[in-house]
Write a protein that binds this DNA or RNA. Structure first.
Lengths: 208, 208
DNA sequence: ACCTGAACACCGTTCAAGT
DNA sequence: ACCTGAACACCGTTCAAGT
């Protein structure tokens, strides 16, 4: 009985030692995916990980910190998805459109996670925090893509920051409206993103 | 003492009779403005209105319904603000840009209220609900403005729905990013909205 | 009809105590 | 160091009872 109650050697130590923080984040991501942010409770997370209700206070000061870690993790895979779309579509005009569509696709595939990243649950104030850095690095992918196109004469030469902010806002807005189910027309979110990127392209061409 | 404890004639009846629903919504709007959505509790709202904790269940099935009523009220004044900007700026190209800026201004002035309207707290599923109607009516202002400009040859003739959705998403995205404090550059939200409307204009001109 | 008080089933968080 | 159990101060919601 003593043996059968231990599924793996040192399972107990494995749970409680070192990787509880990571296990907590992974568990939270899964719970949020299945039941939304409001479905995440510290007590439930502790129970899922066979750990005391208060164990996670050793790794996070409070629930907000856990959510911030979840959002940070989200921004990192988000950045990877944007970069992959940009590169695998050959950069340039096509890659840029692909990146816009990948943006919306990420949000549609991970709606709850995306909401944690952008839903205003976090302070997002501490400019030094890991979260802010991860968010800025995702934004940087867009900024770099614009600068590269400007260098190639594909986008008119001007301050890339407001350009990037405008485009970010457009795809972010599409993502949010789609997630909220507020786009009633026939189009999917990705189709609308394609449409938007085409219109944006017309508005930022060098000749325009 | 009996008299001094009654600030107004029939104050008690006034509180509890007929207008409790409206008083509850107004109180919730104020609380949300001051302390955010998470600061709104039914118990606190009841206490503020000198009413029992459970009194409001006579007027709303649950807390979600109260928030939906708050959002509905928000969409109505939102619609009025958009329409006022469109009309007082002389419609056409100028009015359209003014409407975009008014959109972001509303969100900046009423961030918490705006978040309730778009934050995903509500189901927004029931297409028949008052909330959906109020939201659709606000969207309709944008749709009408586009159609009017198309009739005047100011916007290329094509299906106005994706056009409206794209523009809605752009200003919505700006509003959300500004509210979340995620736009670090020098520009204010309204300035970015002006920039965006100019770029959007270039992309939807008949000649483009 | 509308309102009330007590109670239920949850939360996040703290804290003294264990190993 | 890391974890635990009990306790505290909150929630939303229900329900029998009052007028």
């Amino acid at each position: 009985m003593a043996v059968s109650s231990r599924p793996q050697r040192k399972a107990r130590d494995a749970y409680h030692h070192g990787n509880l923080r990571e296990a907590l984040i992974a568990q939270a991501v899964q719970t949020i995916r299945k039941h939304g942010v409001e479905g995440l409770t510290l007590r439930g997370a502790g129970a899922d990980l066979r750990v005391s209700r208060t164990a996670l206070y050793r790794h996070f000061p409070d629930k907000h910190a856990l959510l911030a870690a979840v959002a940070t993790e989200g921004f990192r895979s988000f950045r990877a998805a944007l970069l992959a779309a940009w590169e695998s579509a050959g950069r340039g005009r096509e890659g840029f459109a692909a990146m816009g569509m990948a943006y919306v696709r990420f949000a549609v595939i991970n709606p709850s996670h995306y909401r944690v990243m952008f839903g205003g649950f976090l302070d997002s104030a501490g400019t030094e925090s890991e979260l802010s850095v991860a968010g800025a690095e995702a934004f940087q992918v867009l900024l770099d893509a614009i600068a590269e196109q400007q260098a190639q004469g594909l986008i008119r030469a001007e301050d890339p920051l407001p350009l990037a902010q405008y485009i970010w806002a457009a795809v972010h807005g599409i993502a949010m409206l789609v997630i909220d189910g507020r786009l009633q027309g026939a189009q999917t979110g990705e189709e609308l993103a394609r449409f938007a990127m085409a219109r944006i392209r017309t508005g930022i061409d060098p000749g325009a």
